[in-house]
Amino acid sequence: MIRIDSIEAGRGSLPRRSAKQMSNERESYVLTMQEDTPELIEQWRDALDELYMEFRKRSRAALKDYDVEDVHQARVSARKLLTLLPVLDPDDESGLYRPIKKAQKRFGRVRDADVLIGEFKQLRQEAKEAGRGDESRLFKRMAKLEKEERRSQRKKLSAKLPKIVNGKLDRRWKTFLKEDLPELAARADVVGSVRELKDDYRKRRHVYQVTADRAGLYSDEALDALHQVRIAAKRCRYTAEAAAFALGDKQAEDAEHFKSVQKRLGEVNDRHVRIRIADDYGPEALGADEAGWTAFRERLDAQLKEALEEVGEL
Rank of each mutant, 00 (worst) to 15 (best):
V68S: 00
K57H: 04
Q34E: 09
E183R: 14
E69W: 14
V71Y: 00
L157A: 01
H272C: 05
K203N: 05
E149H: 07
D199W: 07
R60F: 11
A222P: 15
D91Y: 04
G12T: 12
D65S: 08
R3D: 12
K168A: 13
A233K: 07
R17Q: 01
Y97G: 04
E256A: 13
R3Y: 06
L84K: 07
R60H: 08
I41F: 01
T37A: 06
E179A: 08
K101W: 11
D89Y: 05
N166S: 09
L314P: 08
R16A: 00
D49F: 03
Y238V: 15
R16W: 05
P99S: 03
M22N: 04
A19I: 12
Y52K: 04
V190I: 11
I164A: 03
L63H: 00
E119M: 10
T294D: 03
K128W: 11
V191A: 01
P38T: 05
L308A: 00
A222M: 12
E298Y: 06
P15M: 12
R202W: 11
R111I: 10
A143H: 04
L96A: 04
Q251T: 12
V268S: 01
Q21E: 08
K147L: 13
R235K: 13
S18C: 04
Y238K: 09
R237H: 06
R230E: 12
G266I: 13
Q153F: 09
V165P: 07
L81H: 03
A113P: 14
L51Q: 07
E8L: 13
E284K: 07
D254Y: 03
I41M: 07
L177A: 06
I231Q: 01
Q21D: 03
H257C: 10
Q73F: 12
R132Y: 02
D46A: 10
R202M: 13
A302S: 05
L96R: 05
S260D: 15
K305I: 09
Q228I: 13
V229N: 01
G118W: 01
A244L: 10
S152P: 06
Q303G: 04
L161I: 15
K156R: 12
D279V: 14
E284P: 14
R202G: 07
R299H: 03
A295Q: 06
K174S: 11
T175P: 14
E39V: 15
D67Y: 06
R195Y: 02
R106V: 14
Q209W: 08
Q153C: 07
E50P: 15
V268A: 00
S59P: 15
K57C: 10
K105I: 15
I277D: 01
E35R: 07
E298D: 04
S6C: 11
E54W: 05
D36N: 08
L85G: 03
I2W: 03
L116P: 14
R187D: 08
R202K: 12
D67C: 06
L138P: 15
H72N: 08
E310D: 11
R124S: 10
A78I: 14
R235S: 08
D65N: 10
V165S: 01
P162C: 00
P162K: 01
R204V: 11
E27S: 00
A74C: 09
E267Q: 07
R26H: 05
L40I: 13
P38C: 03
R195G: 02
D91V: 11
I231P: 15
